[in-house]
Design a protein around this nucleic acid. Sequence first.
DNA 1: CATAATATGTCAACATGGCTGACGTAAATG
DNA 2: CATTTACGTCAGCCATGTTGACATATTATG
Lengths: 185, 185
Amino acid sequence: MADVNVSAKIAAPASGLTERPGAAPAPAEPVWDIIELLFFAYRDFVGDPDEVLSKLAFGRAHHRVLHFVNRNPGMKVADLLEILNITKQSLGRVLKQLVDQGFVVQKEGAQDRRQRLLYVTPKGETLALKLAGLQTQRINRAFAELGPGAHEAARRFLTAMIDADNREGVLRLITRAERATKPRS
Amino acid sequence: MADVNVSAKIAAPASGLTERPGAAPAPAEPVWDIIELLFFAYRDFVGDPDEVLSKLAFGRAHHRVLHFVNRNPGMKVADLLEILNITKQSLGRVLKQLVDQGFVVQKEGAQDRRQRLLYVTPKGETLALKLAGLQTQRINRAFAELGPGAHEAARRFLTAMIDADNREGVLRLITRAERATKPRS
DNA sequence: CATAATATGTCAACATGGCTGACGTAAATG
DNA sequence: CATTTACGTCAGCCATGTTGACATATTATG
């Protein structure tokens, strides 16, 4: 189970079950361990923030919005919609709550005054960092257990799991946000 | 950003922001890349099955139930509730649909006839394997990109991300399922 | 300049999948 | 026999996603 050589099979579609020659071309054996570990790891990963958020009557939707606005100050509503891949109506609800409660502000675009550029307030940044801090604790605990190279290995694995189409865009987003958020330190 | 030595900071709670001595004890710098990569990787990872499921008027809830029943034939309803960590009312809805449409069957327990042990039908197994096959394609594509050792590295990382309390239970679950599902090949 | 396109907001209605609370029934257990 | 357990069900609420239609301000264009 551990060292199956699968690299030759990955082009095959998965549908059949047995290995009758002439039928469906041998699906790769499901990688059950990774499938299930991803489920449980992600569950716990988002579970930490959930507890904090529930005390504020916020949910994961608020977390996602707050996170990306914090990471990309001055982003357009349209950009956020594209990242989150939800409708503006869905975004509107949670965004309105975040604005009403003073976690996020919208400023008219300088060049294009139709735009409502999004920024976190100090209050919003504090919350965003608190939530990121919880997740960071978990991640760093894992890295500490695993020894050096774990961060790089995790980054490479997760990156390779992203749709090849989006991958560049996601990496650009992360890099751009790195630039936009870091200078405040 | 790449090689910050964080292992000395992980015990510190994250709340403050600056490094005033005497105040909150220096939160670890958020590991933004992993936080965001996990978000996007998981999104794509569950996105593949979602497309197939939507054609059957099923959602992720059905997927999770079908997955774990397929992996743990004969499991009790109570076990499934514990794994999914939802209420029996929530489970009831999706389970009923899966049963009504012939993907899952319930059999009276042999020793304890109160139990309704869960099994996938051949139809259910086919669907479960189709969905797992999609996710396996993505995983194996990633592993192929990353070279040897990627599977082991991913497993170790994901395992370390799970709550220490549950970790043993999860690993036992995966191992037990491995035993229960494999012998049919 | 008039018109079209764009960025955003909003109203209404609906679906999914969580939740709580209450209650029922059959079977096991003390 | 009384209680507990395993499970099912009814009723209703909430969060967060959806579609469709429409309004408003601003920019872009023929």
